[in-house]
Simulated assay, not measured.
Amino acid sequence: MTTTKSPSVTLLSDYSLEMTGKDVPALEEAQAGIPAGTRINVTYLGNEDLDMRVNAARAVRLANFKPVPHISARRLTSKAQLEEFLSRLQEAEVSSSVFVVGGDPHTPEGPYSDSAEVIRTGILQEYGVTGVSISGYPEGHPDIKTDVLWGALQEKADSIREQGLEGTILTQFGFDTEPVIEWIQAVRERGIDFPIRVGVPGPAGVKRLLGYARRFGVASSAGIVQKYGFSLANLLGTAGPDRFVADLADRLDGAGLGTVKLHFYTFGGMRATANWATEFVAKQNAAAS
């Protein structure tokens, strides 16, 4: 007797994770529970230096995962700094895939005002980059108009294709599947066929998740909180993305929307997120048998 995989199990296959340069000990702690070859993004934070970022990406590779270092355009002070970072990544054999993002500073610290400008330089390929991830915002951005976001996404996708690079779209996290599905449909209607990795908060404390939602301008109304499965009566409790993942998988199943996977923001820790994924798949498989 053969068992068909549930849509949730299919969606969860080949998920990706996120870590900071300071999370190498957390990576080592979680390593056994993460599937070999998993993509792990390494952030580019203002309070971390070059060595920390490169060493974290190297640790990901040595742990038998696929590192995806971030490049924060507005944090780069010069072309030379970009080239130094890429050179160090190449030396560490972790430069094949990168995620280019605008970054937090409202005022650029150097010559690049957004991620599109970094991609257009053509510098990435000179240092061994073959794949570029770019940002997507299903629920919009608190500081950028919607039409500007769509224009930027199209521009970056076109530039990536013209340069013969592999493109991926990585979305901001959210708590409601409805805007995610509508946004994916709009991406496909614009002729952008890149794989999409939908941002999902890993299991974490309810209070922490709501804090991140406010910080990043993600909608967190009572209705959406209820859909996601928060308990506002228990702010000291924890919440996992079970309901979000199951609903998203059901909506994507048979919808013909191309390759869609999950990317976990590990607010509650890498180990907790990896364990949640393993347990969730086990529960789905048990229910299907």
Rank of each mutant, 00 (worst) to 15 (best):
Arg120Trp: 03
Arg120Cys: 12
Arg120Ser: 14
Arg120Val: 11
Thr121Gly: 05
Gly122Asn: 10
Gly122Phe: 10
Gly122Val: 12
Gly122Tyr: 08
Gly122Cys: 08
Ile123Pro: 00
Ile123Cys: 10
Ile123Trp: 09
Gln125Lys: 15
Gln125Ser: 14
Glu126Arg: 13
Glu126Trp: 00
Glu126Gln: 14
Glu126Ala: 12
Tyr127Arg: 01
Gly128Tyr: 01
Gly128Met: 02
Gly128Val: 04
Val129Tyr: 00
Val129Thr: 12
Val129Ser: 00
Val129Ile: 02
Thr130Asn: 10
Thr130Val: 12
Gly131Gln: 14
Gly131Lys: 13
Val132Pro: 00
Ser133Ala: 15
Ile134Asp: 01
Ile134Phe: 00
Ile134Ser: 06
Ile134Asn: 02
Ser135Met: 04
Ser135Cys: 04
Ser135Asn: 09
Ser135Val: 08
Gly136Lys: 01
Tyr137Asn: 07
Pro138Gln: 06
Pro138Met: 03
Glu139Lys: 01
Glu139Tyr: 05
Glu139Ser: 07
Gly140Cys: 05
Gly140Asn: 09
His141Asn: 07
His141Arg: 02
His141Cys: 06
Pro142Asn: 03
Pro142Lys: 08
Pro142Leu: 07
Pro142Gln: 08
Pro142Glu: 04
Asp143Tyr: 11
Asp143Ser: 14
Ile144Asp: 10
Ile144Glu: 13
Ile144Gly: 05
Lys145Thr: 14
Lys145Val: 11
Thr146Gln: 15
Thr146Cys: 06
Thr146His: 13
Asp147Met: 07
Asp147Cys: 01
Val148Ser: 11
Val148Lys: 14
Val148Met: 12
Val148Trp: 07
Val148Pro: 00
Leu149Cys: 13
Trp150His: 13
Trp150Ile: 09
Trp150Met: 09
Ala152Gln: 14
Ala152Cys: 12
Ala152Asp: 15
Leu153Thr: 13
Leu153Cys: 07
Leu153Glu: 04
Gln154His: 08
Gln154Lys: 13
Glu155Asp: 14
Glu155Lys: 07
Lys156Cys: 05
Lys156Gln: 11
Ala157Trp: 03
Asp158Tyr: 00
Asp158Ser: 11
Asp158Lys: 08
Asp158Leu: 02
Ser159Val: 05
Ser159Leu: 12
Ser159Pro: 00
Ser159Gly: 03
Ser159Phe: 00
Ile160Ser: 02
Arg161Thr: 15
Arg161Leu: 11
Arg161His: 13
Arg161Ala: 10
Arg161Val: 12
Arg161Ile: 10
Glu162Gln: 15
Gln163Lys: 15
Gln163Met: 14
Gln163Ile: 06
Gln163Glu: 09
Gly164Phe: 03
Leu165Asp: 07
Leu165Thr: 07
Leu165Trp: 03
Leu165Pro: 02
Leu165Glu: 09
Gly167Thr: 11
Gly167Phe: 10
Gly167His: 10
Gly167Asp: 10
Gly167Met: 10
Thr168Met: 13
Ile169Asn: 02
Ile169Tyr: 04
Ile169Ala: 08
